[in-house]
């Protein structure tokens, strides 16, 4: 894999869950070092896409290559090695409720990196917590933390092994506007401090604009639009406009047919087929 190769290269990815085609020939490329925000309505497959990227789900068909590893065909060892290079922040933070903050953040180091001294582990945890602007919380239990803090600790755990790629599942959901902005700032700072590639799934338009080098809109199981925030603002595609403007009427809510949607598709982002 050369430095110019895309970090994530997905082509024609299909996934059916509970009889519903959630991802329908989805194609996407993420370049090294960029932050891609993926927006879309609830239940349109944003989290499912992230789960394919870390191999928690396998595609029914299509290709999903991440950091040079094809998650569809890689065995347990290959997926395990890939996951050591990827950080994942869950919507809820997904901290282990039975452990304090220190143990939660130290978990990937203790379980997967052999030969680290206790002092080294503690030092790394402290440094990582400082990166997410948390200090002196090591001995607190997850239940004693606010929603925003839990996400910060979750982020600290995701980046404690200094991954090459960080995935965020709705990092700002359930936070107040100030909490949202501070998580957005953190995501932006990760890019410069750790020099990572990031994919952020969100339904918060303001957040996506702030953090995304590019923004992708997922609709009907595909990446319907992808472009810079400026390009997103400039497009007059009615579907994109509806989501960006938060309008209740428009193609997204009319339940219009596939053919019509294809006709509405903007030039420059040709459908996958």
């Amino acid at each position: 894999m050369t430095p110019t190769d895309p970090v994530i290269d997905i082509a024609e990815l299909c996934k059916t869950l509970g009889g519903r085609r959630v991802l329908n020939r989805l194609s996407l490329q993420v370049r090294r070092g960029e932050t891609l925000a993926i927006i879309g309505r609830s239940g349109t497959g944003k989290s499912v896409l992230l789960k394919h990227i870390v191999g928690l789900m396998k595609p029914d068909s299509g290709r999903c290559s991440v950091l040079g590893v094809d998650t569809a065909t890689a065995g347990d060892a290959g997926i395990g090695a890939l996951r050591r290079r990827v950080g994942y922040l869950f919507q809820s933070g997904a901290l282990l409720a039975a452990m304090d903050v220190l143990e939660n953040v130290a978990l990937p180091l203790r379980e997967c990196e052999s030969g680290l001294s206790e002092a080294r582990i503690r030092e790394t945890v402290r440094e990582t917590l400082a990166l997410v602007n948390l200090e002196g919380v090591e001995s607190r239990m997850p239940s004693e933390l606010s929603g925003g803090m839990r996400k910060r600790v979750g982020l600290a755990r995701a980046i404690v092994r200094r991954p090459e790629l960080v995935l965020y599942d709705e990092p700002t959901s359930g936070l107040d506007p100030i909490g949202t902005s501070s998580i957005d700032d953190l995501i932006r700072s990760m890019k410069s401090v750790l020099n990572v590639t990031q994919v952020v799934v969100t339904h918060d338009m303001a957040s996506a604009r702030r953090i995304g080098d590019r923004i992708g809109l997922i609709w009907e199981g595909r990446i319907y639009f992808v472009g810079t925030p400026a390009e997103l603002e400039a497009t007059d595609d009615p579907t994109v406009r509806q989501f960006v403007g938060g309008l209740t009427t428009g193609p997204m809510t009319e339940g219009i047919g596939e053919t019509q949607l294809l006709r509405n598709r903007p030039r420059g982002d040709a459908p996958a087929e």
Binding site: L56, G80, Q91, P108
Partner: peptide, 11 residues
Amino acid sequence: EEIDALEVMSI
């Protein structure tokens, strides 16, 4: 999601 979290940490 704690089990998923373990898996993505390759535990």
